[in-house]
Amino acid sequence: MKELQINEEIRAKEVRLIDAQGEQRGVVSIREARDLANESKLDLVNIAPIANPPVCKIIDYGKYRYETIKKEKESKKKQKTITVKEIRLRPNIDKHDLEVKAKRANEFLSKGDKVKVTVRFRGRELGHTGMGKDLLEVFAGLISENGVVEKRPAMEGRSMIMILNSNINK
Score class of each variant (00 low, 15 high):
Lys57Val: 14
Glu72Met: 13
Val100Asp: 03
Pro53Asp: 06
Ile82Lys: 06
Glu67Asp: 08
Asn52Thr: 12
Lys116Asp: 04
His128Tyr: 08
Asn52Pro: 00
Leu98Ala: 04
Phe108Cys: 02
Asp113Asn: 15
Glu67Arg: 10
Ile58Pro: 06
Arg88Glu: 15
Lys73Ile: 09
Tyr61Arg: 04
Arg65Cys: 11
Val55Ile: 15
Pro91Met: 04
Asp113Gln: 12
Glu107Pro: 00
Asp113Pro: 00
Asp60Gln: 06
Ile58Ala: 01
Gly62Asp: 11
Arg88Ser: 13
Asp60Gly: 03
Arg124Asp: 12
Lys116Ala: 04
Gly130Tyr: 13
Gly127Gln: 10
Glu67Lys: 05
Val100Gly: 01
Ala51Pro: 00
Pro49Asn: 04
Pro91Gly: 06
Arg122Gln: 15
Lys103Ser: 13
Gly130Ala: 15
Lys63Leu: 15
Val55Ala: 05
Gly127Thr: 06
Lys85His: 05
Val55Glu: 03
Ile58Glu: 14
Gly62Glu: 14
His96Trp: 05
Arg65Asn: 08
Glu107Leu: 02
Leu109Gln: 05
Thr68Pro: 00
Lys76Pro: 02
Ile82Phe: 01
Val100Ala: 06
Lys103Glu: 10
Gln79Lys: 15
Asn106Tyr: 01
Gln79Pro: 00
Glu67Trp: 08
Lys95Pro: 06
Lys114Cys: 05
Lys77Leu: 13
Ile59Leu: 15
Lys70Asp: 10
Lys71Thr: 07
Glu125Ile: 11
Lys103His: 06
Lys114Ile: 04
Ile58Thr: 12
Glu72Tyr: 13
Ile59Arg: 09
Leu98Ser: 07
Phe108Gly: 01
Asp113Ala: 12
Lys70Leu: 09
Lys76Arg: 14
Cys56Pro: 11
Val84Phe: 03
Lys73Met: 14
Lys77Met: 10
Asn52Cys: 04
Lys116Met: 12
Lys103Phe: 09
Cys56Phe: 10
Asn92Trp: 10
Val55Asp: 06
Lys63Arg: 14
Phe108Ile: 00
Asp97Val: 01
Thr68Arg: 13
Val119Gln: 06
Thr129Trp: 12
Leu109Cys: 05
Ala102Ile: 11
